[in-house]
Design a protein around this nucleic acid. Sequence first.
DNA 1: TGCACATGTAATACATTGCTTACATGTGCA
DNA 2: TGCACATGTAAGCAATGTATTACATGTGCA
Lengths: 105, 105
Amino acid sequence: MNADQLSAKLSAIASPQRMRVLALLSGERLHVSELARRVGMSRALLYMHLTKLEEAGFVAGHLEMSPDGKALKYFELVPFTLTLDAQTLVDAVAQTTNESEKTDA
Amino acid sequence: MNADQLSAKLSAIASPQRMRVLALLSGERLHVSELARRVGMSRALLYMHLTKLEEAGFVAGHLEMSPDGKALKYFELVPFTLTLDAQTLVDAVAQTTNESEKTDA
DNA sequence: TGCACATGTAATACATTGCTTACATGTGCA
DNA sequence: TGCACATGTAAGCAATGTATTACATGTGCA
């Protein structure tokens, strides 16, 4: 993982609002409207946050049909573990500057 | 560590520019002007980044006198290891919402 | 037909960051 | 005296990120 990718992941998670979303999804799978009520923010805003989290790979969402015919978009947490220390950063930076000479991976 | 504190730390580190700074300081102690040349950015800009990193506790700076009488502000890396997973976030969020009822820590 | 509840997005305003330029101040030295 | 090199900060601007409001669309049901 290069510096830009790592930065994207960290930026996605580095927000109190998004942390709350992740914490809630950590307990259970929820659909957007329900999640919006739980976390106390507008759907539109939640949407932006969810999009960011999904792009970074922390959550995954998929549309489902409820028994009574309503379309519900459920989001669930994607398990992850990130360890951050100086060496991690050195490696990420190294892979970034050498972006040109990538042989296999 | 509550959500806001964690967010501050992650935000500080979630920047390719600041990652480069940390990576450089990981190898050696450097003073601001020299660091600015190495990383290829203006001193003023570097200052902002260093301030952010210092507030988050990733680097520490102190003024020193060079043999020839110049004041040099050296920065060095503060060793750190951060592990991020769902539980970490749940804990951080929990400590934030219970901000009112803090007993001892 | 109209209400309740769902998804999805556009427009807009506002706040925060990131960055550049410029200046003030201080030391050593030719 | 003036140049080179250092710290430290303020002002202004461009780019991002955050948040609100509003609208279009669809389903079930009284």
